[in-house]
């Protein structure tokens, strides 16, 4: 046991250098993508907007119906072969970190957009009507009345997505990112203690995710102040 714990600093180093930054950055970008996607998909505008909506629907469909690992492979190993004359004649080559962030952001964005869209749709019609009768525009109603309420119901499922994302970053090992899981694999290969090494790394993920559930609890509390009668 003693000799496994000596690797802890090395593992945590990888976690703080890659695992956590990839998860946090991807989640922040993913939420922005999700919000934009959700708002476009609930839009009731016609004309060009119908084409835009179709594009975003396609985006959500493709990321929800294909494995994350395959998505990572396409972005990192596949895109270098996508040669676009004038824009990327030599293919799109991304460093592993960027490829990881891009894929995780888009993947999380697709899932979270459905969460946010569902939360918006679930707000009673009467809230829209009350905002309308005050003379608010659709945008004002969304910003002031609908989204603040939708946000509250979104917190638990969004926290779920974040927790999944933290664990999914272990897949980044497959595109040569030296993150937490990759480091544990390297150590296990050298010290022949796979059971202890992988158990230790599992424990580290569990600790991180547990901290996140506490943050979720706090967020739920502050966003639902108004329901405490």
């Amino acid at each position: 046991m003693q000799n496994v714990l000596q690797y802890l600093p090395q593992l945590l180093g990888a976690a703080f250098k890659y695992t956590i930054p990839i998860a946090v950055i991807s989640f922040v970008i993913g939420i922005v993508i999700a919000l934009i996607t959700a708002l476009i998909r609930i839009s009731n505008k016609r004309g060009v907007m119908l084409v835009v909506k179709a594009i975003f629907r396609f985006y959500v469909w493709i990321f929800r119906t294909t494995p994350l690992l395959v998505q990572l492979f396409i972005v990192y190993f596949g895109l270098p072969y996508l040669k676009i004359a004038g824009i990327a004649p030599d293919g799109i080559k991304l460093v592993p970190f960027t490829a990881g962030i891009l894929t995780f952001s888009l993947n999380t964005g697709a899932y979270c957009s459905e969460t946010i869209r569902a939360a918006i749709i679930a707000i009673p019609k009467g809230q829209w009507e009350a905002a309308s009768t005050l003379g608010m525009t659709r945008r004002q109603a969304l910003q002031r009345i609908i989204l603040p309420q939708a946000l509250r119901t979104s917190v638990p499922p969004l926290a779920n997505s974040f927790i999944s994302l933290v664990k999914d970053t272990s897949l980044a090992a497959s595109i040569t990112i030296i993150e937490l899981f990759e480091v544990s694999q390297q150590i296990a290969a050298a010290n022949f203690q796979p059971l202890l090494m992988y158990s230790l790394v599992a424990l580290i993920y569990a600790v991180f995710c547990t901290v996140l559930t506490f943050i979720q609890g706090y967020l739920e509390k502050i966003t639902s102040r108004y329901t405490i009668a």
């Binding site: 009467g126 009350a130 309420q149």
Partner: peptide
Amino acid sequence: NYNLFPHL
């Protein structure tokens, strides 16, 4: 049903 804004 009043439709007050519950978050305000």
